[in-house]
């Protein structure tokens, strides 16, 4: 009881701070200097129609590389922790020998129909990242959701770990190589002008942005898949 009271007291203090922030907040009427630079220059600098993509992939491309590295580390730590052999003598969680219940006709047929469509939609989202809302991270998450659907319809399904880690490491290496190429051929690390900018608003435009976002999409999809697959396989080991 006393613990709940202390928690409520802490949250009341925090809520008071939030009220202060809220009362002092007035929405901007014009863009600030950074944002209006991005709004005015992103077309001539990068050729991308989606300014958020221009910020993420080109202007702050190094940060995105760091973000992908964080995800990579997470996937590595998850599989490192979960594949450690258990200390001897601890009982095994779950009953592996017991036959799992079938997931049902609806889910199995639906999976067969939906998985190719979901994969295609994921690829669409990251290939069009410089034109429409979406991009590598969203598309990668959609790719991984297709794998989740497969796991739901057949929980005992096994995936090829080597293939997943190959896709992940190759796209990661190519991402860095493109960044270094920008250093050599264009203005700086991860500069997208190593390829021609093309006609504004078409699929093959914005220089290297579609290539980089495709690589990010494959990498993120592989990382999410590896996390899900290790979490799902840890149960019966």
């Amino acid at each position: 009881m006393i613990k709940k009271f202390v928690a409520l007291l802490l949250l009341a203090g925090l809520g008071l701070m939030f009220v202060g922030l809220l009362l002092g907040f007035t929405p901007d009427q014009v863009l600030n200097t950074t944002a209006s630079y991005y709004a005015d220059h992103s077309v001539e600098d990068t050729g991308a129609a989606n300014i958020v993509t221009a910020v993420i992939v080109t202007y702050r491309g190094l940060d995105t590389l760091g973000e992908v590295t964080v995800l990579f580390l997470t996937a590595t730590i998850v599989s490192l922790i979960l594949t450690q052999p258990r200390p001897s003598g601890t009982p095994i969680i779950g009953v592996a020998e017991k036959k799992a219940l079938s997931s049902g006709e609806l889910l199995q047929t639906g999976t067969r129909l939906l998985v190719p469509l979901v994969l295609l939609f994921g690829v669409y989202v990251f290939v069009n990242g410089h034109l429409t809302p979406g991009g590598g991270f969203q598309g990668g998450a959609i790719l991984a959701s297709a794998l989740l659907l497969l796991l739901l319809s057949d929980p005992t399904k096994r995936f090829n770990h080597r293939l997943i880690s190959r896709v992940e490491s190759i796209s990661g290496i190519l991402y860095v190589v493109i960044g270094v190429l920008g250093l050599v051929l264009a203005g700086g690390f991860l500069d997208n002008r190593i390829l021609p900018l093309g006609a504004f608003g078409t699929l093959f435009s914005a220089g290297a942005i579609p290539v980089i976002y495709t690589l990010i999409g494959l990498k993120v999809g592989a990382e999410f898949s590896s996390m899900m697959v290790t979490l799902s396989e840890s149960r019966d080991r």
Partner: peptide, 10 residues
């Protein structure tokens, strides 16, 4: 007219 029509992308 992008800087007059869009919200902050950052």
């Amino acid at each position: 007219d992008a800087s007059l029509r869009i919200i902050d992308p950052v």
